[in-house]
Design a protein around this nucleic acid. Structure first.
Lengths: 253, 253
DNA sequence: ACAAAAGTGTTTGATATACACCCATGT
DNA sequence: ACATGGGTGTATATCAAACACTTTTGT
């Protein structure tokens, strides 16, 4: 919880530096141990979680604002980011209104105004992320997609909308480069798709299909030391991958 | 061209009523005589055209703002509208800056600030539209998609982006209800698809496919009086159409 | 030897593509 | 009669779905 003095300072600082009425909310997807995860923040004195977010500097491109915000929360530099929607309901509670209502007169509290939020989703490598709480939070942590906590404001709507957008993207773009380690096995990649889609896929058909896209290279050497038959390792062929990103495929799962 | 006095009034009015820093730009697609058209505005003293647009009232949902703006420009009430992207480059010229720079000191000119624009596209029935110029324009008119004039600001980028989004939508949603008259022939509908996609389609395959979606009803009576074999008339089956809108198809053209 | 994971191939049905002929109408 | 636009069907290729057996390895 911020003190009144801190709130005043943040408010003045924000008024000076940020574009008013615009916020950015990011849904950061990671993948670990066969689970899709979303990066969330939580204050210590509230049970509600919220999405990493922030504001746009006065001379900053909105896409750069999203990059900057995510860099602050994750430490990551190169992030796959996709703008997916704007949330512009006047009743989507004003930013942090719940938390700091009454502490400052409305005129002095920059955060109390109406905010129209631009939603981005990000795909990141779970292991590369070092979660950093922001000024309003004490905790920044991954949460399983199938065990999401209650969330502030309209953030539940936002992350669900992000998931829909991600599923749509699956149909015409490759994903995975940003979510998987450099080398991975076919079953691991399949797990990623299954998690995003929320349904099981046939191993054989999955393999045929994904190989058909021509975006994977298979290593000579299978992974050893596992308890079972040694699986092959794959990595993305970046040239074809990039190409597929811009060209898009036909597909549909 | 506005007088200085008018500009001052508009500026004060806008400051009072609208959310600052947010604008809305609409790409209105219509279809007439086998041509895809976009509704544009033009001032009398500038050769550059621009998209219908406006601002968001302080307590208004952004989607409603788009509806209101289009209603003002087209007279239409029920419009198929789709948010497709936000344009947030700080250098996308500030709204109407070119036109009214120097007329008012920056502080007094609400329009001179930075605007982040939310892009919507709309599909409308050409014949239902009565184009109304806005306060800044003398002309509001349809322009052919393949004969688009030079445009202000980043509006060329915006309408191209809208067209991309529309083409994407073609792959998983029915369109046409909003663009075609109540009754139409199969070749007419095909022409619409061809225009949006910018390529020719096979008559027989088009028909099979579109009928397969199950969103069309064929009238008993073919259209008469044409110069050739009388074509059947179709109309959309609204129940199935609405269903397909929410469910989406698999497809891909 | 067996349980568990991973590799691989075939058959079947559906959908997309390509293509050609007949019909109705006005001139 | 013919030119033009419109209606319809079939054969082929391609792709998605369903499905089962074999291999490897640790226990």
């Amino acid at each position: 919880m911020l003190s009144k003095q801190q709130l005043i300072e943040y408010s003045e600082d924000a008024r000076k530096n940020y574009v008013n009425h615009i916020s950015i909310d990011c849904v950061v997807f990671g993948f670990h141990e066969g689970q899709m995860k979303v990066l969330l923040l939580k204050t210590n004195d509230e049970e509600k979680w919220y999405l990493p977010g922030g504001f746009v500097l006065k001379e900053e491109h909105i896409d750069n604002a999203a990059v900057r915000i995510l860099q602050e929360r994750t430490g990551l530099d190169k992030i796959f980011l996709q703008q997916f929607r704007v949330f512009g309901d006047p009743d989507r509670s004003k930013f942090h209104n719940d938390m700091y209502v009454g502490m400052l007169p409305k005129e002095e509290n920059w955060f109390s105004g109406r905010f129209i939020s631009i939603g981005y989703y990000a795909l990141v490598d779970f292991f590369d992320v070092t979660p950093h709480p922001d000024q309003f939070s004490e905790l920044c942590a991954w949460r399983d997609l199938d065990d999401m906590p209650e969330m502030q404001l309209d953030h539940e709507k936002i992350y669900k909308s992000a998931l829909d957008a991600l599923r749509l993207q699956l149909n015409y773009q490759p994903i995975g480069y940003n979510l998987m380690p450099r080398e991975f096995t076919m079953p691991e990649l399949q797990k990623l798709y299954e998690t995003i889609l929320g349904k099981k896929l046939d191993r054989r058909n999955f393999q045929r299909r994904i190989l058909g896209f021509g975006i994977l290279n298979r290593s000579e050497e299978p992974r050893k030391g596992g308890a079972h038959k040694a699986p092959y390792l794959y990595s993305f062929d970046m040239e074809n991958y990039q190409n597929a990103l811009t060209e898009g495929f036909k597909g549909g799962w």
